[in-house]
Structure formats: structure tokens, C-alpha cells
Design a protein around this nucleic acid. Structure first.
Ligand code: FES
Ligand code: FES
Lengths: 141, 141
DNA sequence: TATAAACTTGACCATTTTAGTCGGGTATGT
DNA sequence: ACATACCCGACTAAAATGGTCAAGTTTATA
């Protein structure tokens, strides 16, 4: 079970953005330099964040990105959903009655993995960008 | 974030084993047929489970595997550790002061991912094979 | 109005991981 | 003896990951 860089980068970048976008739009170039993330990769990520209305873009010189919502309205769930970082604990189709490995019924551990998925998603549901900002000011001292 | 088949199979197989090993050793062939898991793959998995003293093997005809501990002493943590299914939420070295992407300090989200890792591991720590057996008898009705 | 900064889009790619397979063993109950 | 079942290591096809690259379009500002 590992968290992919795409998900990690998305959150890193948004925390960075949240810190600086009150002053003026933040360019991906700046985020790239500050966070050490490839610029080209960031562009892919922000394209998705924009489609999901988490950020707004301003084109042209002095342009960049700005948050499209308040930090406390942006949950990790929203961010992960935007960049397709999904929690997947089973192979079988959730809706179908069928189990994994082509079995006719759900396997002996299916409920367990379902529980696990809920457990993890709860964490993402309960964290917003704002939490990360506060948290970070604390550890900054 | 996805759970790999190796981890899922290990737990499936052990639940199967726990159900039948009071009578006599359970062969991988039987588990393979009942659970729909490749026999060759199961052998790799059980080799690790054995090294970690979660199961014992009996060779020869009528042989097979038996649990090496009580179901309530076998936690998901133990199983996952045995088959190298580890939870990994960060890229950076935990021990090092250095951050991800070669930065000198830990990044703005490091604490978050640490929390997440603990959150997930807590789930695995609190579930034993016994829980799965009980749970399953309930849903069997 | 020329220029450069910065977003936009889509294709491409190397590496790593996953989920196995395969081919040989060795031990042992009947 | 022989079939059953564990044991062990090498190999591999396919998918996912973590990017890169090329070719735009938009817009502030000098
Ligand atoms: S995981 Fe859903 S049926 Fe096995
Ligand atoms: S995740 Fe540990 S420093 Fe970024």
C-alpha cells in the first residue's frame, strides 16, 4: 500500500499555494523550485486540479494559480479525487455480486477490505488544507 | 493507494487455512481451488509465511500447512510484514533529517503522511485472524 | 508592438512493480 | 515405487509510475 507521488505532490503544491496566493497568483515555476517538483509534472497535476475547480488559473505574465475555495473547504478527499489518487483495496467490482478471481460470491475477506477502505477514506475526509496550514505554522516555530 | 494481491491473497489463504486446519494439514492445492489463487503464487506467499513462523509445513503425501499460532495471535500486521506488504506514505527516509526530493528539511506535508501511516497501521494492528473468522460466520448465515 | 512569462494540451517514454509462470528439485505416507 | 505435496530460484508479460518533450495560446509590460 503506497501513496503515489502524484497525490503527495498535489497536496504539497496546494499547501504551498495556500500560503502565498493572498499576495498574488503563484506560478508553477515557483512551486516547482520551492518544493522540488518537476515543472512539467506539476502542469499535469494542476490541469486536473483546475478541471475539478480546486484552483483557478491566470494566464500571461505575472499569472499563475490561485485557490478557488477557502482552504477549509478543500479536503484531502477532494484533492485526491481530482488527481485520480484513489484508495482501492479490492480487485472485484463493488457493485457486482461477483467476487474476485471470477468467483460467484464475494470472498472471505471482502468485508475486511471494505472496512479498510472506509477507514482510510475517513482520514482524508477529515483533513482540509486549512488543517495543514495551521499544523505547519506550529511546527515552523 | 492500492492494496496488492499478494497481501490480499495472504489473508484470504490464512482465513481458509484457519477454518480447516483443525482437521488435518491443508494443502496449497486445496486453497488454490477454493480461493481461486494460482498455486505457484501461493507457494511463494507461504514460503514467506513459514519463514515468519505464521504457519508450519508438513511435507509428503497428506501434508500441507497448519497455523503456527492461535488465530487471535496473528494480526494483519504480522501477515503483511511477512509478505512485505508495507504501508509507505512517504518517499523520504524516515530516520534521516532530510526531506523528499533531496531537500535539506522535511517537506510541508511530511507530518501529514506520517499521521496517515499510523492511521492505517492501527487498523492492521487491531485486526486478528480470529476477528475474520467470527465475522465470517456471521455473514455466512 | 515585441517579448517573455506563464498557462495548455497531448504525446511519448524509461523504469519499476506486480502478478504471476516455469522448471526443477526433495520429503514422505501408502 | 510412486504420487502427493512442499521447496527454491529464475524468469517474464503487462501495467503502473513518474516523469519528459514539443508545440502551442494568452497576456502584462517595457
Ligand atoms: S475482494 Fe471482493 S470478493 Fe474478494
Ligand atoms: S514526505 Fe518526508 S519530506 Fe516530503
Amino acid at each position: 500500500m503506497k501513496l503515489t507521488s502524484k497525490g503527495r505532490y498535489a497536496v504539497m503544491a496546494l499547501v504551498d499555494l495556500a500560503r502565498f496566493d493572498n499576495i498574488n497568483p503563484v506560478s508553477l515555476r515557483d512551486i516547482s523550485l520551492r518544493q522540488g517538483i518537476s515543472l512539467d509534472y506539476l502542469e499535469q497535476i494542476f490541469s486536473k486540479l483546475k478541471k475539478n475547480e480546486i484552483v483557478k488559473s491566470i494566464r500571461g505574465t505575472q499569472g499563475g494559480y490561485v485557490l478557488n475555495k477557502n482552504p477549509n473547504e478543500i479536503k484531502l478527499t477532494n484533492i485526491f479525487h481530482a488527481v485520480d489518487e484513489k484508495v482501492k483495496t479490492v480487485q472485484c467490482k463493488k457493485e457486482s455480486k461477483k467476487g474476485c478471481n471470477g468467483k460467484a460470491t464475494k470472498c472471505v475477506t471482502h468485508n475486511l477490505w471494505d472496512e479498510l477502505e472506509v477507514h482510510i477514506n475517513t482520514f482524508f475526509e477529515n483533513k482540509s488544507l486549512k488543517d495543514l496550514l495551521n499544523n505547519n505554522q506550529e511546527t515552523r516555530v
